[in-house]
Amino acid sequence: MRALFILLAMLFSGGSALAGDLTVSVRDARGQAIRDAVVTVTPAAGVPRGPIRFSWPLRMTQEDLQFQPYVLIVPVGGVVSFPNLDRVRHHVYSFSRGNRFEIELYGRDQSRSYTFNTVGVAAMGCNIHDQMLAYIKVVDTPWAAKSGADGTVTLRGIPAGAATLKVWHPQLVVRGNETAQAVTVTAAAAQRTFTGDFSGRAAVR
């Protein structure tokens, strides 16, 4: 009886450890690749406890009167730095619901930071330079990344089972600029293509 219990425990443990990779290709209605689309997967069973960490720096630089990068993915609770590398001063702000804040004027080689505690989007602008625009996407899952120039993104090591796949982009013409669909993750690598209307105008809001 004890041996049977141990065997069942081992089988259960092995099954729960199964994980797979998912590659998503993001395209517009003409089949053109869309870069900077944020793709997330949230397993129905939940995400691991503890803080979420990503491999990229939580930093949005101001240089040549632009924000870099255009889209930054940040885990909920993440602290983002805003270094100013320009010769002029900047006044960084977001009026987005749930992520509203302002960092008043500061100059070259100075940096400020802000903690993002609310899942959602912060549309970033500068109160001095209207052409400056960027987005911070705050997520609560470690399976998150943005598409490159080829429109693709691969999320690795997702636990097998039911999950929710989301695609967000500032120009995606759907409510909240984000769409969701149910997926089933298996131990085998899988590919999906997402096609949407990306004709919307990205703007600070």
Rank of each mutant, 00 (worst) to 15 (best):
G148N: 08
N177P: 01
L133E: 13
K137R: 15
A122I: 01
A188Y: 03
R175S: 11
G107F: 06
A19I: 05
R49M: 09
N99S: 11
V24E: 02
E178M: 13
E63K: 06
T152I: 08
M1T: 14
A162D: 15
Y106W: 07
T179I: 14
D21Y: 04
D28N: 15
V39L: 07
I103H: 07
I6N: 08
A160Q: 12
T141P: 01
V26C: 04
L72I: 04
T152D: 09
V76S: 10
P69D: 08
T184M: 04
A162T: 03
V74T: 11
Y70I: 03
T195C: 00
Q110L: 10
V139T: 05
V139F: 01
L7V: 13
N127Y: 14
V167F: 02
V119R: 04
Q131Y: 03
V121E: 12
D86Q: 02
R201A: 10
I6K: 11
A134T: 05
D28T: 12
A160K: 10
L7H: 13
M124R: 01
I73T: 15
T186M: 03
T152G: 12
G15W: 12
G125P: 02
L11D: 05
V74S: 11
A163S: 11
S81K: 06
S16Q: 14
V41D: 02
S147C: 05
L65R: 11
P159L: 07
I103F: 07
I34K: 09
P48W: 09
E63T: 08
Y135M: 01
S113T: 11
I103G: 01
F5Y: 10
G20Y: 11
L11H: 02
V47H: 03
I158C: 10
I73S: 13
A19M: 07
S16M: 13
V47G: 10
G14C: 13
S113V: 00
P48C: 07
Q68N: 13
P43A: 00
P69I: 05
L7T: 14
V26G: 10
L8Y: 11
Q181F: 04
F198Q: 00
G78Y: 07
V153D: 09
R201D: 01
G78D: 07
P57Q: 12
W56Y: 09
G125I: 02
R2H: 08
Q32G: 07
V71K: 03
S25Q: 12
I6F: 09
V38L: 14
T193E: 15
V121N: 01
G125Y: 02
V74Q: 03
T40I: 05
G161L: 11
A187F: 02
S94N: 00
M124E: 00
I52W: 09
G77P: 07
V153P: 03
T141S: 15
G50F: 10
V153L: 08
A187R: 14
S147I: 05
R97N: 08
V138F: 06
G31P: 06
P83G: 07
P51Y: 06
G200Y: 05
A202F: 07
A9N: 06
K166F: 00
D64I: 00
K146Y: 11
T61L: 12
N177A: 09
H90A: 04
R87A: 08
R2D: 11
F116A: 02
A9F: 13
F54P: 05
M132L: 05
Y135A: 03
R35G: 09
S96R: 06
V183W: 00
F101Q: 05
M124A: 01
G20S: 09
A122R: 04
T115K: 14
M124Q: 01
D130R: 15
